[in-house]
């Protein structure tokens, strides 16, 4: 394949914010991918930092497993502040 493997691109829009996924580019190596990502995804000052990762290196959860991975969190409301009822005088906690 002459246009090189696929790379996923992540852009940090500004300091204080995490890198977010914006799309993908084809390139043969990291430097080429970085330049391609810069030219495609930051022309409108959308970013201050770039990551490029070979798509093949991403390990992703399988949507079929969403039930076992993510549903069990839903019934543990004690992880959230409102579940712990306190007198009004100290409810600011």
């Amino acid at each position: 394949m002459t246009d090189g493997p696929l790379w996923e691109v992540f852009v940090r829009p500004r300091r204080g914010v995490s890198h977010g996924h914006v799309g993908s580019v084809h390139a043969h190596d990291g430097e080429q991918a970085l330049q391609a990502a810069r030219d495609l995804f930051t022309r409108r000052s959308e970013g201050v930092s770039l990551w490029v990762v070979p798509s093949a290196d991403i390990v992703a959860s399988n949507p079929v497993d969403a039930g076992q991975l993510f549903d069990p969190a839903a019934d543990k409301d004690y992880r959230f502040p409102p579940a712990h009822v306190l007198p009004d005088e100290v409810d600011y906690m």
């Binding site: 002459t2 246009d3 090189g4 043969h28 190596d29 080429q32």
Partner: peptide, 12 residues
Amino acid sequence: GTWVREAARAYA
């Protein structure tokens, strides 16, 4: 442009 893409691949 095939030769260009091939050069990039070979180099990498």
